[in-house]
Amino acid sequence: MDINKTLDAKGLACPMPIVKTKKAIEDIDSGQILEVVATDAGAKSDLTAWCKSSGHELVDMNEDDGVFTFYIKKG
């Protein structure tokens, strides 16, 4: 998977991961991939819901020792 942009949101608490993700996705084109790395435990449901509602696709997600990585395809 080609990653076009990476956002490091580690250590940030609600609502910052979602606010920063929104800003970051404005910098890429439709169809490109944004990688978001976060440690906020709520980020999993937050980003899933946000993608669904804003028309982006959560292509993949994984968790490693409390660090969540999301791959979002811009809609």
Binding site: C14, P15, I18, V19, T21, K22, W50, S53, S54
Partner: peptide, 11 residues
Amino acid sequence: YIIANGAAAYD
């Protein structure tokens, strides 16, 4: 303000 910022991120 957290809700407001979250909603703004939801456009």
